[in-house]
Design a protein around this nucleic acid. Structure first.
Length: 906
DNA sequence: ACCGCCGGGTGCC
DNA sequence: ACCGCCGGGTGCC
């Protein structure tokens, strides 16, 4: 198995290099980032005053330098500390004077390593490495030499420099593309070293991979294993990366990152964990309800705060606990065989997972508490923090998966009337709240949630805390808990930097301190150091469990989803529509072919795009064009006016919900910006180009571009209010096609729900009219809606009650990846997208765990139109993406022009 | 610190 | 002796 050989050993150099580049990320970097730094050189200095301090270091141990401007003896003082932050000594005065200047002016970052002499009594040597940007190199060298110090610039320094420059130059090409691959590789094979599924023989309603996850989570919570890179060296604990050692056993908080793809049941697994792994590996003791609550188990979404609160304290469910019989140290699930028939799945899970060093055969007392005991047994409550949008999902799942005749106290800490008494909160089994509420309470310090010592804190969608400067991140770090979990389908979104916050939250020593993370992991990986990559992999491996939908457990797919079938339904335009369409197409063709002849397609890209969008809109409904594109006869205008108009036109194109693709990353544009040459990119992608190319040129047309000239698009374009009054409304061939499908479906089986998807939100508005006329209950979900409204709509749609909506009008890109629309089993894609992946993603919202019916996808394509050509191009697209690694920008440029020609049949 | 530095004691060999 | 040399006291910033 590859994993046993080190995960990257099978890759050749170029792949590794690409990977490390990918991991650098693309986001803007506000503060000084290690990514762009180069090594100026090294300098030997000495640490003095050792005898006055307690901090000790090992041979080769890394140390940090800390300025002490307030030192009464010398305002230039530079303190030397070990990995744990204990002071070792000071930098000798003369050198400190020079370093202070460099540090105070941010000219370089200085790393220290004690090469030998670590046991000296009075002074010890230290090798200082100076890192910074090229423009500061001279100043640093100057500053040092003016004090009589000379940097040693070994060959290693220049190598690193060359590597960085090289890496930077090709970063822009495939970044977002290989980012996904890179992260998947990072998490690849993580299962191999995890505990296998323990209970394959037992038929339990937890799916195998969920049992596996539960088992893994229990091990993480109960195990006393050292964090990665630590060794027990006879009483001392030694870190093999920083060479530091400590007397007390280093411990990360028990927990980790459950990074399974969405839809694999992270929520359910977490609920199982809460119920099954309480103190000392025993299940959560729950009192039985004598009478089952007769109150309706329905609750509303967090729409009205007060309603929520009134619902907040209620028995959610039940877990029957049998006596624990623990045989050995293997985690063990036992399942009630005589569970009542109507019990949902997991409720039958009735004993526990227990991990102990070596347990006797007796129940209870004989279970060896993992030593040393990790939990203050006074802590009993699990705090779950999630985005507001999934709050209701947690309530649903708790309700659904916990047996109704047992009392699990779940308190929804939300709304103005929430009970802020920490004593009350700590008597609950589960407290559920949102990041916003938690952050608002905290406001810099304290708050009720920070007054409780939690047994466990669970961060749902934990990637939301990836920005360490965000208030919610700070608040989260300050919570007191014995065990900490991060649930996230996308633990790393943009770059390796994202991982630091998660590591810090898990208190993975010593990486919870940014400096050590940067020095030991992030910088080495960024400059393409293979050892660094290996260390990163080892680190991730030990705190993360990640499976994707395509992962397999024991040779079987993780989840078996219902079948899905895919139809293309060709739509014939009426004679009248055809005439109008051909008119527009002929006109567009003439314009574009002129551009092609002139070789100016890319320079007139905005115009070309507008023509295409117009034709695509026409295929849906002639009224979609609206008055927006009344451009005829190019009146002479100043270049500035022209530019302004082009930008305006593109704004319309993007605002219409059309799915434009970024030429750099070949994915849908994210955080769209437009250059003054009218080409649209993701902001991070073009930022990378601007950073690495001097002078920067537009990747498409090679025209000069400037950061200051980038124009941003509004994230959400506000839709003009008001639907289309039925009087002025007319139908179109495509609308008719949809309506006849919907009517037929309703006739066959009135419980089938459908998603109707379009890129054009205006088209969705048009569709409301016939839906209403035919008496369909429907809801609508698009990007302009507030989170709260979205949640309401989803809840309404997902409901199985008789009057619930049968149709959801969905804008193609609305909603995050977490969207769960399993109530629908039919998907109607009204218009083709540039990027087939976006369509797949959309279909996945109903074709996912929880879907019970076969999913039927229908794509309406107007025959003999631009849409048909788009479908052809979509098929070729996948190839292009796969080849993109080896493709240079100019090649991609030509393929883009070819694409447009193919669309227009030129 | 098995050093360097400081400053007092000392002064041919 | 306004030096050299010796040896004890001393020691981060």
């Amino acid at each position: 198995m590859q994993s046993s050989r080190g995960w990257f050993s099978f890759m050749d150099d170029s792949v590794t290099e690409t990977l490390s580049q990918a991991l650098q990320g693309t986001g803007e970097q506000p503060d000084r980032e290690p990514d762009t730094e180069i090594l100026f050189g090294n300098l030997r200095g000495s640490v003095v005053g050792l005898r006055y301090y307690t901090g000790v270091v090992n041979k080769r141990e890394m140390v940090s330098l800390v300025r002490q401007p307030q030192n009464p003896h010398d305002r230039n003082a530079v303190m030397v500390a070990n990995v744990y932050g204990s002071q070792v000594g000071h930098i000798k005065r003369e050198l400190a004077a020079s370093l202070a200047n460099i540090m105070d002016n941010n000219l370089a970052r200085i790393d220290g390593v004690v090469p030998f002499g670590a046991t000296n009594v009075f002074t010890m040597p230290v090798v200082l490495s100076f890192w910074g940007t090229e423009e500061n190199r001279h100043a640093v060298v100057q500053q040092l030499s003016s004090h009589g110090f000379k940097l040693q610039t070994g060959s290693s320094g220049t190598n690193t420099h060359a590597h960085c420059a090289n890496a930077a130059s090709c970063v822009g090409i495939c970044l977002t593309l290989c980012l996904k691959n890179a992260f998947d590789s990072l998490f690849e094979d993580l299962m191999e070293d995890k505990n296998g599924e323990r209970e394959a023989a037992v038929c339990t309603p937890l799916l195998p991979h969920q049992k596996q996850a539960l088992s893994w989570m229990c091990v993480c919570e109960n195990s006393v294993a050292l964090p990665p890179f630590w060794e027990d060296k006879g009483g001392l604990f030694y870190n093999t990366l920083t060479y530091s050692s400590v007397r007390e056993r280093p411990q990360r908080v028990r927990g980790g990152i459950l990074a399974d793809d969405m839809g694999l049941g992270k929520t359910l697994t977490t609920i199982a964990l809460i119920l099954s792994n309480f103190h000392n590996g025993k299940p959560l003791p729950l009192e039985k309800c004598t009478k089952t609550s007769a109150t309706p188990r329905k609750h509303s979404l967090p729409g009205g705060d007060t309603i929520i609160c009134s619902l907040s304290l209620r028995p959610v469910g039940f877990l029957q606990c049998s006596n624990l019989r623990q045989t050995d140290c293997i985690p063990r699930l036992r399942v009630c065989e005589n569970s009542p028939g109507n019990m949902p799945a997991f409720l039958c899970l009735c004993t526990c997972v227990c991990v102990g060093k070596r347990a006797g055969s007796e129940v209870g007392a004989a279970i060896a508490a993992p030593s040393p005991s990790p939990d203050d047994t006074a802590a009993t409550t699990t705090l779950i923090i999630c985005p507001l949008s999934v709050l209701s999902n947690w309530l649903d799942q708790l309700e659904q998966h916990v047996r109704p005749d047992v009392r699990l106290n779940v308190y929804l800490y939300y709304g103005p009337e929430r009970n802020r008494d920490p004593r009350f909160l700590s008597t609950q089994h589960v407290v559920l709240t949102t990041y916003n509420v938690m952050t608002a309470d905290y406001s810099g310090s304290g708050g009720p949630l920070h007054s409780v010592t939690w047994l466990r804190v669970v961060l749902d969608e934990g990637h939301v805390i990836r920005n360490p400067n965000a208030q919610q991140s700070k608040a989260v770090l300050d919570l007191n808990a014995h065990r900490r979990w991060i649930l996230s389908g996308t633990p790393i979104q943009n770059s390796l930097k994202d991982l630091w916050m998660l590591v810090a939250f898990l208190r993975l020593k010593p990486f919870d301190v940014r400096e050590w993370w940067n020095r030991v992991i992030q910088r080495p990986v960024t400059v393409g150091d293979k050892t660094g990559l290996g260390n990163l992999q080892a680190l991730v491996r030990c705190i993360t469990l990640r499976r994707t939908k395509t992962s397999r457990v024991g040779g079987r797919p993780l989840v078996s989803l219902p079948k899905r079938s895919f139809n293309i339904e060709e739509v014939e335009l009426t004679t009248r529509e055809r005439e109008e369409y051909e008119l527009a197409r002929t006109e567009g063709r003439a314009t574009i072919s002129r551009y092609v002849e002139e070789g100016s397609v890319l320079r007139n890209y905005a115009d070309v795009l507008a023509i295409l969008v117009r034709l695509r809109q026409f295929c849906c409904h002639p009224d979609l064009l609206g008055s927006t594109l009344s451009q005829t006869g190019v009146v002479t205008a100043t270049p500035a006016e022209l530019r302004e108009r082009l930008i305006e036109r593109l704004r319309l194109v993007l605002g219409s919900g059309s799915d434009e693709e970024c030429p750099v990353c070949l994915s849908s544009v994210r955080l769209a910006v437009i250059t003054h040459c009218a080409h649209v990119y993701c902001r991070p992608c073009i930022a990378e180009v601007l950073r690495t190319e001097q002078p920067a040129r537009c990747p498409l047309c090679r025209g000069p571009i400037k950061a200051s000239e980038l124009v941003e698009f509004p994230q959400e374009v506000e839709e003009e209010a008001g639907g289309y009054p039925s009087e002025n409304w007319r139908s179109s061939s495509k609308v008719d096609a949809l309506m006849s499908s919907l009517l037929r479906l309703r006739c066959e089986d009135s419980s089938i729900k459908s998603l109707v998807v379009s890129q054009f939100t205006r088209f969705l508005s048009l569709l409301e009219v016939p839906l209403r006329e035919e008496g369909f209950r429907f809801v609508r979900l698009d990007g302009t809606m507030s989170q709260r409204r979205r949640a309401q709509v989803i809840q309404e749609f997902q409901s199985h009650s008789p009057g619930s909506p049968l149709v959801m009008l969905l804008s193609l890109k609305a909603g995050g990846v977490g969207l769960n629309l399993t109530a629908a089993s039919h998907v109607f894609l009204m218009d083709p997208a540039w990027n087939p992946a976006v369509e797949d993603q959309c279909v996945d919202r109903c074709h996912r765990l929880g879907q019970t019916r076969d999913v039927v996808i229908t794509k309406f394509i107007v025959k003999d139109s631009v849409e048909e050509n788009m479908v052809k191009i979509q098929r070729q697209k996948q190839d292009l993406v796969e080849k993109a690694f080896g493709t240079n920008p100019s090649k991609r440029k030509t393929s883009r022009i070819e694409e447009i020609q193919a669309l227009m049949e030129l």
